[in-house]
């Protein structure tokens, strides 16, 4: 288990205070804007000063055990190849070809970062971190700006990256597709820690009768489905809105 006990903030003001244990595998870290997700990842990674205890199976995590993807990190005036070379040399990247191939970066190497689209720049930023071989990966919105192709590729790789992967997202479908564990923050405190399936909450039901489509939210899905059917509706989709609620 990865044990986190962190209290961090800026200019003496505590922004996040979290104690949690996370099992091996992929964990989604969710919460509304300003809930402390980025600060928590920064603190766990050691990028900012914090009261911090991070252990794997009772052993403290060393600085070279963690790979951390922040927002940004590349100089818009520099070429992609120069930036990657700088980081990989300083950080000791061990699987450069894997990252370049996964993120399809060969053609972008000679271009300036500032000339890239947001999604292309994010692929280059991801390559910095995915080329590292570490035990724990902390990825702050790794899917931000990626198109469907690369989004699928990155989500598919998360499980293979390392022993523990924690990523933040505002996308419930990404949680569903990749996460075996969920951490939710609200106001800098832990609001939920557990498997996504353990969330009890409201469900959204989409049903149709002829050309009329209705979407109903309820916390008693079985009864509502029966009721809609008795009224002549055919139920098209039943999905949990619990993860979405944690993101609001």
């Amino acid at each position: 288990m990865l044990a986190l006990d962190v209290s961090a903030g800026y200019r003496g003001r505590t922004v996040v205070e979290v104690s949690a244990s996370v099992p091996p595998g992929v964990t989604a870290l969710v919460g509304p804007n300003g809930s402390g997700k980025t600060t928590l990842l920064r603190a766990v990674a050691g990028a900012i000063p914090a009261r911090r205890r991070v252990e794997v199976d009772g052993r403290p995590l060393g600085p070279r055990d963690v790979a951390y993807l922040p927002h940004g990190g590349l100089d818009p005036n520099a070429r992609v190849g120069d930036e990657l070379e700088f980081y990989w040399e300083v950080l000791g990247a061990e699987r450069r070809d894997y990252a370049v191939d996964l993120l399809d970066l060969k053609e972008l190497m000679g271009r300036k970062v500032g000339e890239l689209s947001r999604g292309q720049a994010r692929r280059a930023e991801l390559a910095v971190v995915l080329a590292l071989r570490r035990r724990v990966y902390l990825l702050d919105e790794p899917l931000e700006g990626l198109d469907v192709q690369y989004r699928g590729a990155v989500l598919g790789e998360l499980r293979r990256l390392g022993e523990y992967v924690i990523f933040t997202t505002h996308d419930p479908s990404a949680v569903e597709a990749a996460a075996g564990w969920l951490l939710a923050l609200r106001g800098g405190r832990l609001a939920y820690s557990g498997p996504p399936s353990g969330l009890k909450g409201r469900v959204a039901i989409r049903a149709r009768k002829g050309g009329e489509v209705v979407t109903v939210e309820t916390d008693r899905p079985e009864e509502k489905v029966e009721e809609l059917r008795s009224l002549g509706y055919s139920v098209e989709e039943v999905r949990s809105t619990a993860v979405e609620e944690l993101m609001r």
Binding site: A45, A47, G62, R64, A67, Y68, P70, D75, N77
Partner: peptide, 18 residues
């Protein structure tokens, strides 16, 4: 100045550089 603005030190410090 440029590296602070572009988040370079956050990338370095978060990935184990002292």
């Amino acid at each position: 100045q440029a590296d602070i603005r572009n988040g370079v030190y956050e990338m370095l410090l978060g990935n184990g550089v002292e």
